[in-house]
C-alpha cells in the first residue's frame, strides 16, 4: 500500500506492506537510524517519536496508521547546526551514558516543554516514566530537561542547572524524592 506522511518537515511517500511498524519504516525505509528499536513491546520507550507533537512508541504504531500525520524524530530536533535546547541540556548535564534511550528521552522532553515550559522535577519524572534508561542515569536526565527549561533559547552553555535553579543541590533533592517514592510504594 502507498503511504504519505511528513517526517521532520519533509513529505515522504512509500510503498509498504501494511504490517510494517513505524519504527522499522523510519529506520529501514527512510534510513533515519536515530530512532532506536528496543524491547518491541511498548515498554522501554527508546523508539519514541513525536506524532502530531505527541510522544508515541513507534514499535506499537503501524506506519500505515501514521500516514497523513506529522512525524518528528531525533534528527528533526536540531535546526541546521543549532541544537535544540533539550539536546544542549543533555550535553551540559551529562544526560546520556550509553545513549540508547536518549532519542526517546529527548523527544518526550521536547513534547513536555512545548506543553509545560516550566515543569518541576516530579512532572519531568512522570513524563519519562514510560521510558527506561538501563544505565539508570535518571537523575542527570531530569537535570538535562531542567537545563533545557531554564534555557528556552539554548545558548549560554556555561550555566549549569545548579546555578539556574536557585543554587540548590538538585541531586540531593532527587535522592530524597526517590527515597520517598520507595516508601510510598512499600
Amino acid at each position: 500500500m502507498q503511504i504519505n506522511m511528513t517526517v521532520n518537515g519533509n513529505e515522504v511517500t512509500s510503498d509498504i506492506e501494511p504490517r510494517v511498524l513505524l519504527v522499522h519504516y523510519i529506520r529501514e525505509v527512510l534510513g533515519l537510524t536515530g530512532t532506536h528499536w528496543g524491547c518491541d513491546t511498548s515498554n522501554c520507550g527508546t523508539c519514541v517519536v513525536l506524532m502530531d507533537g505527541q510522544p508515541v512508541k513507534s514499535c506499537t504504531v503501524l506506519a500505515a496508521m501514521a500516514a497523513g500525520h506529522d512525524i518528528r524524530t531525533v534528527e528533526g530536533l536540531a535546526s541546521g547546526a543549532t541544537l535544540d535546547p533539550v539536546q544542549q541540556g543533555f550535553m551540559e548535564e551529562h544526560g546520556l551514558q550509553c545513549g540508547f534511550c536518549t532519542p526517546g528521552m529527548m523527544l518526550t522532553a521536547r513534547a513536555l516543554l512545548d506543553k509545560n515550559p516550566h515543569p518541576d522535577t516530579t512532572e519531568i519524572r512522570k513524563a519519562i516514566s514510560g521510558q527506561i534508561c538501563r544505565c539508570t542515569g535518571y537523575a542527570t536526565i531530569v537535570r538535562s530537561v531542567q537545563w533545557a527549561a531554564a534555557h528556552p533559547a539554548g545558548g549560554d552553555t556555561d550555566a549549569t542547572v545548579d546555578e539556574v535553579i536557585d543554587g540548590t543541590d538538585t541531586a540531593v533533592e532527587d535522592i530524597a524524592a526517590e527515597t520517598q517514592d520507595a516508601e510510598v510504594k512499600s
Partner: peptide
C-alpha cells in the same frame, strides 16, 4: 493506566 506515552494512543 500504562504510562504517559501509551496513554497518548
Amino acid at each position: 493506566i500504562a504510562d504517559p506515552v501509551v496513554r497518548n494512543r
